[in-house]
Simulated assay, not measured.
Amino acid sequence: MDKVMRLASEKGVVIFTKSSCCLCYAVNILFQELRVNPVVYEIDQDPEGREMEKALMRMGCNTPVPAVFIGGQLVGSTNEVMSMHLSGKLIPMLKPYQAMC
């Protein structure tokens, strides 16, 4: 769990994914459309990926990926991120991390 927390707090927006996960891809695209460039960690490419997946589940993720962290805090997976976006709560959280165009 230490590695997950360290990685999640190193940058403003961090997503833990798996390379074959279509929901991970969709969440990543959403952030890019909102002008946020998240740091993406593909846990299936990490030698410690199994342990990271277990840590994410212990932290409260219903599904281990995608696991979205904003400002070092766990936001959740696809359902939570999309719900926040539809309710208008996601963009204010992302303001500090949006790229200026």
Rank of each mutant, 00 (worst) to 15 (best):
I29G: 03
E33V: 05
V13T: 12
L30K: 14
N28M: 11
E48N: 14
M5S: 09
E10T: 14
G12N: 10
S9L: 02
D46M: 11
V75R: 02
V39M: 09
D46P: 04
V75L: 12
K95I: 15
P66Y: 13
G88Q: 00
T63G: 09
M82W: 09
L74D: 01
S83P: 00
Y41V: 12
L94S: 05
C61E: 02
N28Y: 11
M52R: 05
C21E: 11
I29F: 13
G49K: 05
D2V: 14
C22H: 08
Y97F: 13
M93Y: 05
I91V: 15
A8S: 09
L56D: 13
P47M: 12
K3Y: 08
G88H: 06
A67V: 09
G76P: 03
V4I: 14
S20I: 01
G71K: 06
R35D: 15
R35N: 15
C24W: 04
K54V: 08
P64L: 06
H85W: 14
V39W: 07
K89P: 00
K89D: 06
C24A: 12
L56F: 13
C24K: 10
F69V: 02
V13I: 12
E80A: 06
I70N: 10
K54W: 14
S77M: 01
K3T: 12
V39F: 08
G72Y: 05
P64S: 15
E42C: 07
I70K: 10
N28H: 11
V40E: 07
L94G: 02
I91L: 12
Q73S: 14
V75S: 00
P92G: 03
Y25F: 12
L34Y: 13
V36G: 04
E42K: 14
G49T: 03
P66N: 04
K54F: 12
G49R: 04
T78V: 09
N28F: 07
